[in-house]
């Protein structure tokens, strides 16, 4: 009797522990995904009746020039944001020493990551300002005329990405610093005896051991690049003329803005963004699954 009571307690217990978490996660995260997919098949201003339009929103999307501008910018973000990974590695190697005060240096290098993206955005608006921004003052020393980075369609996205790279590089740096701490000292000594040095050592001995750090750095950088909303909203509000929008921003703009509430159309953009993200999520889960089975 007692044994069976124990056993049923053990089958029931996980569900009791899980219930509150599942409940919250279901109503705020899982269900909304399906609701959004559903809304994307309607034309809806958020208040009145929803009108079924089938794939109408998606068809409109594929003829919408702003959609392609946003998509192109998303690709730029994905590509150039990846620079945070090697940059973070570089700084980590630079700082992986034991000189006096190095701990404080490491913390201060990490600093930008702790600050809100809103503040980082404001800091860089300031930095890029054509009249008094620090960047243009420095360019001036080299005789280069001021560049209004954030008002120029050609540069604006790159300017915002560069600002975003600042905290992201700090994040990758801290991942690599932790990784470098755990690198096997004996292997390095052995490699030194074999005359491995500098870049060769880095490539053949160190980087393979940093694989877990690299994996996480890439995952967080991909996620970060697809969540570039904050910086864009603060720095340019999508401008000039919508040229710095990304899908996340365009979606927000379509859903609630002066252009009117186009929730259905916004939802269809969100679904596209979600599908792009799903590729990464699936890859990540696949790797987790392999690791789980390997245990």
């Amino acid at each position: 009797m007692i044994a069976s009571g124990r056993l049923s307690q053990r089958t029931l217990a996980p569900w009791i522990f899980l219930l509150p978490g599942i409940f919250m996660f279901f109503i705020y995260v899982i269900a909304p995904i399906f609701q959004s997919i559903n809304v994307s098949f309607y034309s809806w201003d958020g208040l009145g009746e929803k009108v079924w339009v089938g794939f109408g929103n998606y068809i409109e999307l594929f003829g919408d020039e702003a959609f392609y501008v946003s998509l192109k910018n998303n690709v730029l973000w994905l590509l150039f944001f990846m620079l945070a990974v090697p940059a973070g590695l570089f700084i980590a190697i630079f700082l992986n020493q034991t000189v006096w005060g190095i701990r404080l240096y490491k913390s201060l290098f990490f600093f930008p990551f702790v600050i809100s993206q809103v503040v980082v955005g404001l800091v860089f608006v300031w930095f890029y300002n054509p009249d008094f921004g620090l960047m243009n003052i420095i360019l001036g020393w080299f005789g280069i005329d001021p560049i209004a980075v954030l008002a120029d369609e050609r540069y604006v996205t790159y300017g915002i990405i560069a600002a975003g790279l600042w905290p992201q590089t700090a994040y990758c740096m801290i991942l690599y610093l932790t990784g470098l701490n755990a690198v096997d000292g004996e292997m390095i000594e052995a490699a030194r005896l074999d005359n491995a040095k500098g870049l060769r050592m880095l490539w053949y001995v160190i980087l393979p051991q940093l694989k877990p750090a690299t994996f996480i750095a890439i995952v967080v950088t991909v996620v970060g690049s697809l969540r570039s909303f904050d910086m864009i909203s603060i720095m340019t509000d999508g401008g000039p003329w919508g040229s710095s929008r990304v899908l996340a921003f365009y979606m927000y703009e379509q859903s609630f803005s002066e252009y009117g509430f186009r929730m259905g159309y916004g939802a269809s953009i969100a679904v596209i963004l979600f599908l792009i993200m799903m590729v990464y999520i699936t890859g990540f889960l696949y790797k987790m699954y392999r690791d789980e089975r390997g245990r």
Binding site: Y28, A31, I33, S36, V223, Y252, M263, G266, A267, F274
Partner: peptide, 10 residues
């Protein structure tokens, strides 16, 4: 990892 935008309206 879900993009926030797909949750926004609901």
């Amino acid at each position: 990892f879900v993009p926030f935008q797909i949750l926004m309206v609901p």
